[in-house]
Design a protein around this nucleic acid. Sequence first.
DNA 1: GAGTTTTATGTAATAATATAACGCGGTCTC
DNA 2: GAGACCGCGTTATATTATTACATAAAACTC
Lengths: 136, 136
Amino acid sequence: MTAHAHPELTKNQSLVFGSLSDAGGPLTAYAILDLLREDGFRAPLQVYRALDKLVEYGMVHRLESLNAFVACAHTGCSAHGAAAFAICEQCGDVIEFTPDEALKGLNDWAGAQDFTLARMTIELRGTCGACKSKAV
Amino acid sequence: MTAHAHPELTKNQSLVFGSLSDAGGPLTAYAILDLLREDGFRAPLQVYRALDKLVEYGMVHRLESLNAFVACAHTGCSAHGAAAFAICEQCGDVIEFTPDEALKGLNDWAGAQDFTLARMTIELRGTCGACKSKAV
DNA sequence: GAGTTTTATGTAATAATATAACGCGGTCTC
DNA sequence: GAGACCGCGTTATATTATTACATAAAACTC
């Protein structure tokens, strides 16, 4: 539960970020709630409020196609709105990456349309190399 | 409610596709349900089942970041998994487009990672040109 | 065309995800 | 110390989506 160069986290924010970091993968808000019951969490709102802040700080990403949340892979991940995720439908693993060419293309499109970008969601679904090897 | 070169739609599928086409923008499943009550719809499942098929046929897209559905902008939109959406947070308008450069970049990334793509979600959030003009 | 399988349907119940509304307590600032 | 703000706790509720079971209609097989 490293300190990070981010705003001092509150107790609830630290707990939520800790669960996500420890999980090493995506968790739903309710899964986090269950993990934190022993730490005194009682209600979904405690999780959602912390997640809102963590997403705002760029420490956590929301996976829209999974309704789940994941700790940012880049321990200091500040320059954002700009991550992409590949989600393996076999093993559930999520790979975060920065798709420079795609981002350029989308930014160009937005510029040409006079569309001001607030954020982007880029999520790939499929099967990762490891799972394909395993399959007969 | 044009006939399309697609599988013959069932009655429920036609009704759902019709509401989405008429709406000219995204609708949630429950919004569709309310629109179709006068046509005899009673339960969410009637909508979700039709939507599943329509998405499978490529006639409807799901907007993950909105939990909503929209009729495909390309009346015969067959070659898919490959659309992107720009969603204006002021007026709610959705622009569907095909981001060739971005798709190339993401496909290349997947190839390099040995990740087999099943589908992609690309959604841009922001403010469209028209809304920016209106703003003081 | 009788039997079988598949697909679509209707309905009720429930699960999973997310927010609204209220009140309390701390910490700033002035 | 009054006011503003923020985080927190709690209850209730809203929204989105699925499970489970029964019926009916279409398509396929022999």
